[in-house]
């Protein structure tokens, strides 16, 4: 209790001073206890369990359990299908994060510049964030269907027009447009596209919030100093002032895209040729569907290491670099 509070109620305080401290301490422990127990059981214990199981050959339902040391980790770093897993995961993240962040920023800047219709666009761009990703993934699959889908049908309408100057388009007209999700060269890019489609509206909203906190007198001061072009204003004021927002947006987009699962499980099952075999899907397939718990646990630990690294890097970055206020 603060001193000010005890002073303002000085008279009846006398008999309460000793007792309330103790009572508060007890109440605090009692009130935090349920959360404490659950945090330990649901979040901390599983991490420890995964760490231990990752060094065993445990499978669910078998009584014996053998210690295999680091063999599961060695398997991950030497097996070709696991190398594909790391490549697919990293490529997905590298594709989605910049696209989603810059589209979010671009949309926010464009929308802020409008005289009319700001909330109209904001609503539309935010819709994918709200809708069930699994449902929308299934719709995208249908839209990208090689023969029935609206995408290839629309592309086919461009055949015979000057678009055929574009070699890729001409090839599509002659040999058929890509199978998208069924083609190993396109599948991961297609999933990344769906990922960007789903997530950039979220980043847009965060950037819109960030933009409102940029003090407008900075722009006035800049124009007095001779900063005339929109690009210079953006480079000298808007972008640096959005630093904290950007760090946060990049981190959260990264962590989320690392966790991509719905689209992979529903549309590609990690294929074709393991081109979309991302980590969370691998954990699900190895650890749960195939009951290779040791391997699944090792991938879990690797995954946690990735995610923690990103979060810790973000906190470091925020502490060191982003000090504008």
């Amino acid at each position: 209790m603060s001193d000010a509070a005890s002073l303002s109620h000085a008279v009846p305080k006398q008999q309460r001073i000793a007792r309330p401290e103790r009572r508060q301490a007890r109440a605090g422990i009692v009130l935090f206890a349920p959360a404490f127990v659950l945090l330990i059981l649901i979040l901390i214990v599983p991490v420890v369990v995964a760490g231990i199981l990752s060094m065993t050959d445990y499978t669910l339902g078998r009584p014996s359990i053998d210690w295999v040391g680091l063999r599961n980790y060695v398997d991950i770093f030497t097996g070709s299908s696991y190398r594909k897993m790391i490549v697919a995961t990293v490529l997905y993240v590298v594709l989605v994060v910049p696209a989603s962040v810059f589209l979010g920023l671009g949309a926010a800047l464009l929308i802020r510049s409008l005289n009319v219709g700001q909330s109209f666009y904001k609503t539309i761009y935010f819709l994918p964030v709200m809708a069930s990703l699994l449902a929308m993934a299934i719709v995208w699959e249908f839209a990208l269907h090689p023969t029935l889908g609206i995408v290839n049908r629309t592309l086919a309408m461009g055949c015979g027009t000057p678009l055929e100057w574009w070699p890729w388009f001409a090839r599509g007209c002659a040999e058929g447009f890509p199978l998208w999700l069924g083609d190993r060269d396109y599948a991961l890019y297609t999933l990344a596209f769906i990922g960007v489609w789903q997530s950039f509206g979220f980043n847009m909203v965060l950037y819109l919030a960030g933009l409102t906190s940029v003090p407008s007198d900075l722009y006035g001061a800049a124009s007095m100093d001779g900063v005339k072009s929109g690009w210079e204003r953006f480079r000298l004021i808007t972008w640096p002032m959005l630093g904290p927002t950007t760090v946060f947006v990049v981190t959260i987009t990264m962590i989320r895209s690392f966790q991509v699962f719905d689209t992979v499980e529903a549309l590609t099952h990690g294929g074709p040729a393991k081109s979309t075999y991302v980590m969370i899907y691998a954990i699900y397939e190895k650890g749960i569907a195939q009951n290779l718990v040791g391997l699944g646990a090792a991938i879990t630990i690797l995954f946690l290491a990735f995610v923690m690294l990103i979060s810790v890097a973000q906190r470091r970055f925020v502490e060191r670099k982003v000090h504008y206020q």
């Binding site: 979040l43 599983p46 991490v47 962590i255 966790q259 718990v293 646990a297 946690l304």
Partner: peptide, 19 residues
């Protein structure tokens, strides 16, 4: 609490499922 913020529940699905 701050530490637990770093752990995405989806990432520890396997041990949770086993438990």
């Amino acid at each position: 609490v701050l530490f637990c913020l770093l752990i995405p529940v989806h990432a520890i699905a396997l041990p949770l499922y086993l438990m």
